[in-house]
């Protein structure tokens, strides 16, 4: 029984949050955060060397979360491993009780902290999704029969702000055709874009978890606007954070208000508290979750 998958049927609002593995062997601080949100989220996303910054492997950290009682969603990117390693990790994940996978291409190593690394990208996200769907049927990419087929609930990511959006939607449909069953989006910061997105994906039969990122400072807003987001964070939000006494608190408040506002409108959310994971319990509380 996969509790995260079940949450989509049983709950009216599914909540997942991202907790990255540690940047060393010390798992205690990350696990402490995880402990505080136990029972409050339906799944915990474990990032895979996100932005090309080297951390503990998501396989090991997902396993620790599973032991704690969480439903880990193990992210897998195609940047660092070829098809042999990826399939092999999937079998390993299954043996350790990991049931949810979220697949993405991954940022290029050149943007991370090991820019000299060899970029692998043997598969793309669509091909990996397809490969895992086949593993579920008991066959590997070489067409060989497996001794025991893993069970996975497969997810993917979508960037609703990508231009041209038609191209992103073509890829979304391919991921669904390849076996993706749920999607996590890039963060939204205002209703207008969200309404537009809901309209765009109308009629596409899948499950979306809307990305939410608390903005911890004006500096972060500037960074996101310049380097990460296709659509800029509204000026009104920047001004509100700028005018506040405690920028992080204000950022969390804004995110919590947004969550309250869109509850009932979407199936669920995916919280990415980039750099302020320790505020996660507080943020969930503010949002009434």
């Amino acid at each position: 029984m996969n509790l995260f998958k079940e949450a989509f049927d049983k709950k009216d609002f599914v909540v997942t949050a991202e907790i990255p593995p540690p940047k060393g062997s010390n798992v205690i601080p990350s696990l402490e955060i995880a402990k505080k949100v136990l029972g409050k989220v339906d799944g915990v996303n474990v990032t895979d060397n996100q932005r090309g910054i080297m951390r503990m492997c998501p396989l090991a950290f997902s396993h620790l979360l599973k032991e704690m009682g969480h439903n880990p969603i193990m992210q897998v990117c195609t940047r660092d491993r070829n098809r042999l390693a990826l399939q092999s990790d999937m079998l390993g994940a299954s043996a350790l009780g990991i049931e949810n996978i979220c697949i993405m291409t991954g940022d290029h190593p050149k943007l991370g902290n090991h820019p000299d690394a060899k970029p692998v990208f043997d598969l793309d996200s669509v091909q990996l999704t397809k490969a895992i769907k086949e593993l579920k049927k008991g066959v590997n990419m070489a067409g060989k029969k497996l001794d025991g087929a893993p069970e996975f609930f497969i997810g993917g990511v979508i960037n609703p702000f990508f231009e041209p959006v038609e191209l992103e939607l073509i890829k979304l449909r391919k991921k669904i055709a390849a076996g993706a069953e749920f999607f996590q989006t890039q963060p939204f910061f205002e209703r207008e874009s969200l309404d537009k997105f809901i309209e765009q994906v109308k009629g596409i039969d899948t499950k979306f978890l809307i990305g939410i990122s608390p903005l911890k400072s004006v500096k972060m807003i500037d960074f996101m606007n310049e380097k990460v987001l296709n659509k800029k964070i509204p000026d009104a939000i920047k001004k509100r954070i700028e005018a506040s006494e405690n920028q992080t608190e204000e950022g969390i408040k804004i995110a919590a208000e947004f969550i309250r506002a869109i509850r009932g409108l979407v199936k669920g959310i995916h919280i990415m508290p980039i750099g302020i994971e320790s505020y996660l319990p507080h943020m969930l509380e503010e949002a009434g979750l």
């Binding site: 290029h108 050149k110 793309d124 669509v126 990508f162 191209l167 391919k174």
Partner: peptide, 27 residues
């Protein structure tokens, strides 16, 4: 830059590649 065969990585900005904004996004 990632040799993707099934569509863009989603990281391009203003039509440029996420890896180097002097290069066009092939997708």
């Amino acid at each position: 830059s990632k040799s993707l065969l099934n569509g863009p990585c989603g990281g391009s900005m203003q039509g440029k590649c996420e890896v180097d904004n002097k290069k066009e996004c092939a997708w």
